[in-house]
Amino acid sequence: MDKVREKLALLRVESDAASAKLEEAHTRIKQLEQESLQKEQEIQSLTHRNSLLEAEVEKLEQRVQDSKLAADDGDGQRNAAENLQRKVALLEEELEQNDKNLRETTEKLRQVDVKAEHFERKVATLEQERDLLERKLEEMTDNHAKAKRELEEVIGQLDNL
């Protein structure tokens, strides 16, 4: 009977540990979902900024072409064209950097999604384990009650002798 109690206590400890793991997994999932939402917002922001920069690059390229046509008029026009070309180069570099950031953020988002799926599967596994432990506990409780009744019957019969 002490062994049954010890097993019950052990099962309770395991059940409590599984519940704690489950809570941790839920907390981690919420955190990962929040990070995923932040990454999506960052992607949207970078995409918008990227489109604005592309539009500005197109405008500047047009101005560079206009400046090249007007460069025949003098050195002042050449300086303006050079300045615009430098500005275009800087904007293109910034555009490339934003594209790189967008790709990195997208990759991180994919990794977060993979981790979230992993934790969801882990939560499902832990829930199954918990359900199995609860069924075992119920069975052991029923067996314990049955054994107790049988013991009381035997004691009653011995008393009658």
Score class of each variant (00 low, 15 high):
1 M>L: 09
133 L>M: 14
79 N>P: 01
102 L>V: 02
97 Q>F: 04
64 V>G: 03
16 D>A: 12
103 R>S: 13
56 E>V: 00
5 R>S: 09
70 A>W: 10
119 F>Y: 11
90 L>Q: 13
139 E>K: 09
6 E>R: 10
28 R>P: 00
94 E>F: 02
17 A>K: 14
68 K>Q: 15
97 Q>I: 06
90 L>H: 09
55 A>E: 09
151 L>V: 06
58 E>A: 15
12 R>K: 13
124 A>L: 06
33 E>C: 02
8 L>R: 09
133 L>W: 07
133 L>H: 03
32 L>P: 01
27 T>I: 12
137 L>F: 12
101 N>K: 13
53 L>R: 07
29 I>V: 04
41 Q>N: 13
82 E>I: 11
37 L>V: 07
16 D>T: 12
80 A>Q: 10
153 E>C: 01
17 A>S: 15
83 N>C: 04
10 L>D: 10
8 L>G: 12
92 E>M: 08
116 A>M: 05
46 L>S: 02
61 E>S: 13
67 S>P: 00
32 L>S: 01
144 H>C: 07
28 R>C: 05
93 E>P: 02
68 K>L: 08
86 R>Q: 08
24 E>N: 11
131 D>A: 15
35 E>N: 08
93 E>T: 12
109 L>R: 13
63 R>N: 14
38 Q>N: 15
86 R>L: 09
40 E>T: 10
26 H>P: 01
78 R>C: 03
146 K>W: 06
31 Q>P: 00
48 H>N: 04
35 E>Y: 13
154 V>Y: 10
